[in-house]
Design a protein around this nucleic acid. Sequence first.
DNA 1: AATATGCACAACCGCGAGGCA
DNA 2: TTGCCTCGCGGTTGTGCATAT
Length: 244
Amino acid sequence: MGRSPCCEKAHTNKGAWTKEEDDRLIAYIRAHGEGCWRSLPKAAGLLRCGKSCRLRWINYLRPDLKRGNFTEEEDELIIKLHSLLGNKWSLIAGRLPGRTDNEIKNYWNTHIRRKLMNRGIDPATHRPINEPAAADVTTISFATAATKEEEEKDISGFSIKEEKSPVRECCPDLNLELRISPPYQNQSDQPLKTTSSVLCFSCSLGIQNSEECSCGDGTSSSNTGYDFLGLKSGVLDYRSLGMK
DNA sequence: AATATGCACAACCGCGAGGCA
DNA sequence: TTGCCTCGCGGTTGTGCATAT
């Protein structure tokens, strides 16, 4: 059967957008707003398919876009969010005002992947590339879950928890345990403890003693837990991590 | 100076989800 | 309930520029 094409391809331009096309698109959206991308090209007098218009607007023409290089803070935030969300670029972009999913995806593939590789981190798993099979297991967690119920209900259903999996059962050496849980509301002034050791994000990436390291040598009494999403630093409010 | 290679990023493609008749 | 339509997402490709040989 096959899908019907999103537009009449025989009568649409492809490739790089011209200044004139950009101007037309901007003018139309300013006058009529976003929406109904399928009919927009015709209404705006553009020989483009709706998808192309949408992409051009979102990734390049939107007035709130922040152009220019990514900052070191943005880099680290992207790494943190990717370790949590995976290739959910739109969600990651939602945490970076002025950045688009496409931009972040490209930036990840061209810069951050290499950066992590240079650190000896597998960008796909965020684990050391040559991690020994029998290496000590460190559980990453904001807080020790009091009960299974609490762990599962979570706020807004935002909870990521590795269940016991067949993979793990057949490969006991393979640690897939990544627990992401918000700190308890009424325990917010208590240190966020892991069940065993507590690492800052830098150390979890294998860059201990780096400038980014906030946990010292891991023995500091001022250690307040794993600042995985910048909750400690206020970089990210997990409650607003919207899942569509 | 010419060519090859690598990099960065804009744009395209195919698919899935959700809305609606 | 079903099928169509539109939108949005993630993966991939194409192209121009920069750097190396």
